[in-house]
């Protein structure tokens, strides 16, 4: 050990300075110059003098008939600590959670009847902060939101189409609707 101690120590200190300090600090500097919006959390600005409305990448909790709801979250969209349910496929708790959420969705959205509900809308996400829902989950909610806000269903459906993000390069991932962006579009449509 003794013969390699000194060279090992030198390598440790040099790589520490290079990879542990210089690299992340230089990257931070360059990223702040090139992509300041993204590097600082992709914030959506609020009214002047007010805090930002949210990050377009981080989901928020919405409740009540007037808003589109995101997916269930194991951490109730508390961004300080991301988390998932980690329930296994044969866990009775998972089945019960999905069943009780289904009952709520059916009760809240009478126009949907008792049809099966899109998979993403009853299951909690991996991060607990998923900002998106599927197009199917948005359409399911459209009649409820339209009614609560005295809008036509056509107008709400049009908003959903506007706020739908396609697959990356037309190929990768899944089409999706950003819940915060959709709800913000709703409020701007009505003045508040």
């Amino acid at each position: 050990m003794s013969s390699e101690f000194l060279p090992a120590l030198k390598l440790t200190l040099v790589t520490f300075a290079l990879c542990g300090l210089a690299y992340p600090l230089v990257t931070t500097g360059v990223a702040q110059i090139l992509f300041p919006q993204q590097a600082n959390g992709s914030l959506i600005a609020g009214a002047p003098g007010r805090p930002p409305l949210g990050s377009k990448l981080i989901g928020q909790q919405f409740q009540g008939p007037r808003w589109f709801h995101g997916r269930p979250s194991a951490v109730h969209y508390d961004a300080r600590s991301s988390g998932a349910s980690n329930l296994g496929p044969t866990n009775q708790l998972l089945v019960e959670h999905v069943a009780s959420r289904a009952a709520r969705v059916w009760a809240d959205n009478p126009t949907w009847g008792h049809k099966p509900i899109p998979a993403d809308y009853l299951t909690s996400s991996g991060s607990g902060l998923d900002p998106d829902i599927s197009i199917a989950a948005a359409r399911l909610q459209a009649p409820r939101v339209a009614r609560a806000r005295h809008l036509s269903e056509v107008a709400v459906d049009k908003l959903i189409a506007q706020k739908t993000t396609g697959r990356g390069l037309g190929l990768f991932g899944e089409p999706r609707v950003n819940v915060l962006a959709l709800n913000l579009a709703l409020t701007s449509l009505q003045g508040r």
Binding site: A102, H114, P116, D120, S134
Partner: peptide, 21 residues
């Protein structure tokens, strides 16, 4: 009551612990 069939409107499948994107 969960619809896990893939379509143009949803990915479907086992979405527990997965992200929509």
């Amino acid at each position: 009551g969960l619809d896990q069939v893939a379509s143009g409107l949803q990915a479907g499948g086992n979405m527990v612990g997965k992200e929509v994107r």
